[in-house]
Design a protein around this nucleic acid. Sequence first.
DNA 1: AGTGCCGGGAT
DNA 2: ATCCCGGCACT
Length: 440
Amino acid sequence: MSAVHKSRLGKRSPMGALVCAADGLAEPGHLGTEAGDGAGSPMIGPGCRVKLYPGPRVYVNCCGQECAGVAKQHNHADGEVSVFLPQQGHHAVGSFEEVWTTSAGPPQTSPLPRPVSSNVSMPNGYSSPESVDMDEIMAAMVLTSLSCSPVVQSPPQRDPAAASCEMECAGGELSDSGSSGYWSWDRGNGSPAPSPSIPETDSCLAPAVDEGLDMELEQVLFDEPASRKPKSSGRLAYRCLWPSCGKVLTSVVGMKRHIRTLHLGHSSESEQSRREEDFYYTEIHRELDSAAPAMPCASPPNPPADPGSATPPPSLLSQSAPDRCWQVRSEHLYQTSAPLQVTGSPSASCQWTPSVNVLPSPQTAPFRSRSVSVGEQWIQQQQSASLRPHPASRSPPRGHCTSRRVRGEAKKCRKVYGIERRDQWCTACRWKKACQRFVD
DNA sequence: AGTGCCGGGAT
DNA sequence: ATCCCGGCACT
């Protein structure tokens, strides 16, 4: 079956993307949480595999009454959630079941319109998760429109594999998801190797914080753009999301300059470059950030490397905007690629070559060189016990070398017009070729 | 059996 | 390049 698909991916281009979605990779609405099978149970609570990210406002049962707090840690293994209670001014550690995300009541009784997802590292009392989400969504839309061709400007969709990376790795606030996991305590899901080519993934490494602070402190008092002016100045910092950088500065200008000069390698002040810079740093809360223990990303910083040359990490996904685009823009792959996509895995078609080069940074090169998306790798690893370093080495189980395209679901000329009106068929149908009029 | 279409031959 | 068809895969 799958062996048959490969030859038809070309004209039946949507298939690749559909496979990604159909396989459950994309799960809109489950942003930032790892919900279980229960589609309508995004609630934190017992029996629900929801992962609570730091940042969102949560409520705990404190002395018999509901107390608002900020989720800080969630030890998924122990089921303990650490919540910072601003009103009490201390942290509270409670069981997973005692935390809910709406003020309506405990999780068992109050359906949550959205799972705990606003894991943007925001300061205490910054805003509600929902408002942050809106900002993030808007930013994501802009970034997506910049980074991708128009076809990918659909609402952000997440695949669980990508979400798993978010959970493992920090950063990603500027992604199109708008609710990427900043970090998580769940360490049990394989090795949290960060994606080597994605800037956000390495931001969990936060070196050189102090030096950045020392260097840029004076700038806080001056040229702070209104767009990113922190609501509680002095508490916000900006972390460079460039891989193996993680520099934290206290001013946007300094951070942008840092990214522009050190990473992007140019000093252009154009709008384009500024947006690029926005993409590579994130706003962090210094107290939260410093209070956060070692990030789950324990692996050393990965330089931008060819993903195909390394063994694919088990669950390393990020959801940066370009990366997301790849998940969606899978349909043209067969045209630009060769045998790499010709694999038996149904997900192997999820690959594409971006048509727009918006991020001329070195980071983008590995992106484009990806042969199989990480989500696909995740699925393939789930499906196959044997892990193969190169997707090209996978060959589908096929009876013979010839490949036929799968029979299309669409009605063909023969069915539409009938054999008696064969003259109205498309040329291909008349010639017994793949129908060109009613393509799948 | 009916259908879609690949591969290849004929023109 | 166009036209056609044998034959295979699939439903």
